[in-house]
């Protein structure tokens, strides 16, 4: 019997939702297991780093890596898997664009550590102890991965062949992606494995969107009873749909919530947040500075709204703190 192609799953800075989405393949996963040999999947199977190291370079057909890269350990594992794999897929929003963990790039390392280990309301730490990469303990040295200065997307750490977008990716797209990769009929490197038009295309509310939105104020989902059939933008709720790659089947909108942008921009767009901002800003009712400011003040968290999944991968990338 010929050897089955080897597949690895790995997680970096992530929530576990991407792992969950693999399991969400449900009975389809049996087909996957039949077709491939899963050689590494820390969340589900008991393989160790040494097992990966033992595989010949390039011996894994594809590694699907989710999560953003924040620690030295994640970087090390990403590099190891890159060496061992013919193909690397950045799986899910965090690996693709930095994801929710990437919002930490609004703060520098010192701010984060100080807050988490000293200042947060639930912390009592009179000795100001902070995690150390190496600490002696009973004649041994305990080590921890290093907490790097910023969150990076997977492709800012290693070359990435393909991207599977979403927070998390939908099982249907994972299945299609695996089929494609196993078929050997590979798309061009760098392809995001999904449609390349904005989510609006598949949105059931598209036709209810007026051409002239003329915003006077924006409302967050909890501040308004969202009408189930009208375009969310027309209701003053920021929906990232126009600036977000489709493929999810308009899941959030169908669930009466706005698109929050997890599939990232289309291939033609460099900065998803900037794009939706420029579209929304073009539709403000006010024409003078004061009115514009008043309207925009109704968006309390612009970075979290427009760059929710993509700050590290955007042009903004991170905030460089001013310590003066």
């Amino acid at each position: 019997m010929p050897e089955k192609p080897k597949v690895a799953f790995y997680w970096c800075a992530s929530c576990g939702g991407c792992e969950e989405s693999v399991v969400d393949l449900a009975e389809e996963i049996l087909g996957v297991v039949n077709a491939v040999d899963i050689v590494f999947w820390p969340v589900a199977m008991d393989f160790k780093k040494q097992d990966v190291e033992a595989i010949s370079d390039g011996g894994i057909l594809v590694s699907l890596i989710n999560g953003a890269v924040r620690t030295s350990e994640q970087e090390e594992m990403a590099k190891l898997l890159r060496r061992k794999s013919a193909l690397v897929v950045a799986y899910g929003s965090c690996a693709h664009m930095g994801g929710i963990p990437g919002l930490a790039n609004q703060f520098d390392r010192e701010q984060i550590l100080r807050y988490v280990y000293e200042e947060s309301p639930s912390t009592i730490n009179e000795l100001h102890t902070r995690p150390q990469t190496a600490s002696p303990e009973g004649g041994h040295t305990l080590t921890l991965p290093e907490f790097r200065s910023m969150v990076r997307t997977l492709d800012q750490v290693i070359p990435v062949d393909y991207y599977l977008p979403g927070c998390p990716p939908v099982p249907r797209m994972l299945k299609a992606a695996l089929d494609t990769l196993l078929s050997g009929n590979l798309p061009p490197k760098g392809t995001v494995l999904g449609p390349d038009t904005a989510m609006c295309e598949e949105c059931p509310r598209k036709e209810s969107k007026p051409a002239d939105l003329a915003y006077t104020a924006f409302r967050r989902p909890h501040e308004v009873i969202i009408q189930p059939e009208t375009c969310l933008l027309a209701q003053g709720v920021i929906c990232m749909g126009p600036a977000t790659r489709g493929g999810c089947g308009a899941q959030c909108v169908t669930g009466n919530m706005p698109c929050s942008g997890c599939f990232g921009p289309t291939s033609r767009v460099m900065d998803q947040g900037a794009k939706i901002l420029s579209a929304i800003a073009s539709s403000l009712s006010a024409k003078e500075t004061e009115g514009i400011d008043r309207t925009l003040a109704t968006i309390p968290d612009p970075v979290g709204t427009f760059y929710r999944y993509g700050l590290p991968g955007s042009l903004l990338r991170r905030k460089i703190a001013d310590h003066n």
């Binding site: 390349d196 038009t197 904005a198 598209k206 969107k209 051409a211 749909g241 073009s282 539709s283």
Partner: peptide, 15 residues
Amino acid sequence: VVEESCSGCKSCLNI
């Protein structure tokens, strides 16, 4: 407009 890329979201119509 690159037609196959257009999602028909109408963002451009009024500007």
